[in-house]
Simulated assay, not measured.
Amino acid sequence: MFANTAVCGPTLLSPDLAAVLRLLVLAPLLEEWVVRAGLHAWLLPRCSGALAVLASAAAFSALHLGSGPLASALVFGPGLAFGLAYQRWRDWRLCALLHSACNAWALSMCA
């Protein structure tokens, strides 16, 4: 187990059922709907694909600032991956599934 308190916040270290549902269902659906189906899709006709990917990853990171600057920085990489997936397949639901898988991995490493 990873269980580093600098990386794993209290929600990841000892998740209850509500936290697990929030991390595996609610957050991925809402965040990807806003960031990919909203921002990324809006940016595509207005700028390059690379800029859309970078901007959506930065917005995704900003959404995680409430968990601290380290958490925000750590999700930038996955945010890039989700942005590239959206860029390729244009399906925010796939991004939500990938997001959920990343959160499941984080839960398994921290809890």
Rank of each mutant, 00 (worst) to 15 (best):
F76W: 14
D91W: 01
F82A: 07
G49T: 14
S100K: 01
H40V: 07
W42L: 09
L51I: 10
P78T: 01
L54D: 05
T11V: 15
L94H: 02
L84R: 05
L17A: 14
L65G: 08
A27I: 10
L51S: 03
S56G: 14
S67C: 04
L94G: 01
G66L: 13
V53A: 10
L98K: 01
P15D: 05
A81S: 06
A55W: 12
E31K: 03
F82N: 02
A96I: 08
L84Q: 05
L24K: 00
A62P: 12
V35L: 03
H64D: 12
R93E: 05
L84I: 11
R22G: 05
R90F: 09
V75M: 12
L13T: 05
G49K: 09
A62D: 13
A62Q: 15
G9S: 11
L12S: 07
L65M: 10
P10H: 09
L65S: 03
A81N: 03
R88D: 06
T11E: 14
W33H: 04
P78E: 01
D16K: 02
H99K: 06
W89H: 11
A27V: 11
L24I: 00
G83H: 15
C47Q: 08
G9V: 11
C95G: 06
A59S: 10
T11R: 12
F60Q: 08
L13H: 03
L98H: 04
L80R: 15
V75N: 09
A101S: 01
H99G: 14
A81E: 03
E32I: 04
S61P: 08
L29K: 00
E32T: 12
L84H: 10
G77C: 10
A81C: 08
F82W: 08
A55N: 07
L13Y: 06
A59K: 01
Y86M: 04
S14P: 00
P10F: 05
A101G: 04
L21Q: 04
L54V: 14
L97T: 10
V20G: 12
G68Y: 10
H40W: 13
A81Y: 07
